[in-house]
């Protein structure tokens, strides 16, 4: 029985990386992109999730539990691998290592991020809006931590798409795998640029308002 569940557990980890965690990340970034339309639009967008009657169920069932499962199992999977990047200096071996390195960075970032912006709010009752987040990000240390955490998460997601497609036997030949790698690289660059621009805008916003 444990045999059967080993395969299932590992594949569920792979699956949750895209559905729903990866999908959530995309939606989350779309919501955050309203920063480019100004403070009112941003408040309206992040308020979307808060106003829905389904929110508690979505937050626990579609975000919380899958992220927890993927993250905790991911830490285990990272722990049982034995890195050999200096012995076998191949590109893919480095990406394999980076997938695990960014996993740990993302782990620290995401849980801190969720705690500060979502869980702490339950106790303090602070309204989550443009002003609060902009004030928060105007601290240079927080801003730098966000840039690092964000890039790690996005790298992990993009390289994860490549890896996911192999883990499920969708891309089999090297041509298909390399093609997907090019697409994933483009997605990473695009998300990276847009994200940094958005975070920079948020971090400077307080100054602008004053």
């Amino acid at each position: 029985m444990s045999q059967k569940y080993h395969y299932l557990a590992r594949r569920l980890h792979s699956f949750t990386g895209i559905f729903p965690v990866g999908i959530f990340l995309c939606v989350h970034l779309c919501i955050n992109s309203f920063i480019f339309k100004g403070p009112e639009a941003y408040d309206w967008a992040i308020g979307l999730l808060e106003r829905s009657p389904l929110t508690p169920y979505i937050e626990v069932g579609l975000i919380g539990i899958p992220i927890l499962y993927h993250a905790l199992y991911g830490v285990w999977v990272t722990y049982i691998s034995k890195t050999n990047i200096f012995q076998y200096k191949y590109f893919r071996n480095w990406m394999f290592y980076l997938q695990r390195f960014t996993a740990i960075v993302t782990f620290l970032f995401v849980f801190w991020h969720i705690y500060v912006l979502r869980i702490a709010r339950i106790f303090t009752g602070t309204e989550m809006d443009f002003a609060t987040i902009a004030a928060w990000l105007s601290d240079p240390t927080i801003y730098i931590i966000y840039i690092i955490g964000y890039l790690a998460a996005v790298f992990h997601f993009c390289n994860g798409i490549w890896s996911f497609l192999i883990s499920w036997g969708i891309t089999i030949g090297s041509e298909a795998q390399n093609f997907v790698m090019c697409v994933c690289t483009l997605i990473f660059i695009a998300l990276g640029v847009v994200g940094i621009a958005g975070l920079t805008l948020l971090s400077k916003a307080v100054v602008l308002i004053r």
Binding site: R10, R11, Q99, S163
Partner: peptide, 19 residues
């Protein structure tokens, strides 16, 4: 290979083919 120690343990480092 769908059992314990099976294919799901592969993490796509792809060193095997190189060596």
């Amino acid at each position: 290979i769908a059992g314990d120690g099976g294919i799901a343990d592969c993490g796509n480092a792809q060193n095997c083919e190189r060596v």
